[in-house]
């Protein structure tokens, strides 16, 4: 299968990319790694008239410490994040979540900005990011603004990003040696999660339990008031609206959310807080 026809432009700066979005409006789509967009275009579920390729814009790929935060460029590819020493030391949940995305070839292409902007409720990195908190930095015709992580993902393929804005950076708090865990449940290792849970410093986020990635607020509140892990985890699916597909019906997804939350919290609280 092949994409429908389109025009291709390759801006050299974020400003030029924004200008292209302004010029073409609805018809245009950014392409970064292309590993969410091209599959959709091949199935003709997306047919943009203009593709704006931002993957060559310099200086969008970096991980650096800035005060209490770690700033990560939107162009950072999943494999770069996975291997990054700064990220491993400062926000270890992120490189681990990056290592769980798809397969090596996918991680060689996919970008952080792409997965953030795409807003698939089953995506790994947004789940980890949501548990971390922090913000998404976007740039539009009027310059840059910062959107809190908790306000960014609104629904299936729906974000707080305006049509003419580009995600340029993600900023998350440094968690250092604090306990964390990322529990991804799949049938095959390279699959998207049926359900996934990210836990760090008492914050818990869930993949694939609603139209977008969501925080397990009832669990977080229970933890805050000192409830046991078992009790808090038992509330993980509260307020979620899991969908049904061939892998899982809502009842099973709810069960998985509770189970994986319990396991994640146990791991995160464990001494040394190792990954999986």
């Amino acid at each position: 299968m092949i994409p429908g026809a389109f025009e291709y432009v390759r801006p050299g700066t974020v400003e030029e990319a924004v200008a292209a979005l302004v010029e073409h409006g609805d018809d245009a789509k950014l392409i970064a790694g292309g590993h969410s967009l091209l599959p959709l275009m091949k199935l003709r579920l997306a047919m943009p008239a203009v593709l704006v390729d931002i993957s060559r814009i310099p200086d969008l790929s970096y991980v650096r410490v800035e005060g209490d935060e770690v700033a990560i460029g939107a162009g950072t590819r999943h494999f770069e994040l996975e291997k990054d020493d700064v990220a491993r030391a400062e926000v270890p949940i992120l490189p681990y979540a990056a290592s769980q995305v798809g397969d090596p070839q996918v991680r060689h292409r996919g970008t952080l900005g792409g997965t953030v902007a795409h807003s698939d409720p089953a995506s790994d990195l947004p789940t980890a990011l949501l548990a971390l908190g922090g913000s998404v930095v976007v740039q539009g015709p009027g310059g840059r603004r910062s959107i809190p992580m908790t306000e960014f993902w609104l629904g299936f393929y729906e974000t707080a990003l305006a049509e003419d804005e580009v995600v340029v950076e993600v900023r998350v708090p440094r968690t250092g040696s604090a306990g964390w865990a990322y529990e991804k449940f799949t049938r095959r290792a390279n699959d998207w999660p049926i359900v996934a849970v990210a836990a760090v410093e008492g914050r818990v986020a869930l993949a694939n339990m609603a139209g977008a990635v969501v925080r397990a607020t009832a669990t977080e509140e229970a933890l805050a008031r000192g409830a046991s892990i078992a009790e808090a985890a038992g509330l993980a699916d509260e307020g979620t609206s899991p969908s049904s597909d061939m892998h899982a019906d809502p009842e099973y997804r709810r069960h998985l959310a509770r189970l994986l939350t319990r396991r994640a919290l146990e791991k995160a609280s464990g001494a040394g807080a190792a990954a999986a």
């Binding site: 599959p39 199935l43 049938r187 095959r188 290792a189 390279n190 699959d191 061939m246």
Partner: peptide, 16 residues
């Protein structure tokens, strides 16, 4: 059909 792509049909891979 619910399994008409290889994204949906769970073809066994090396990891299983």
């Amino acid at each position: 059909p619910q399994t008409s792509t290889l994204a949906d049909y769970p073809f066994v891979s090396a990891t299983e």
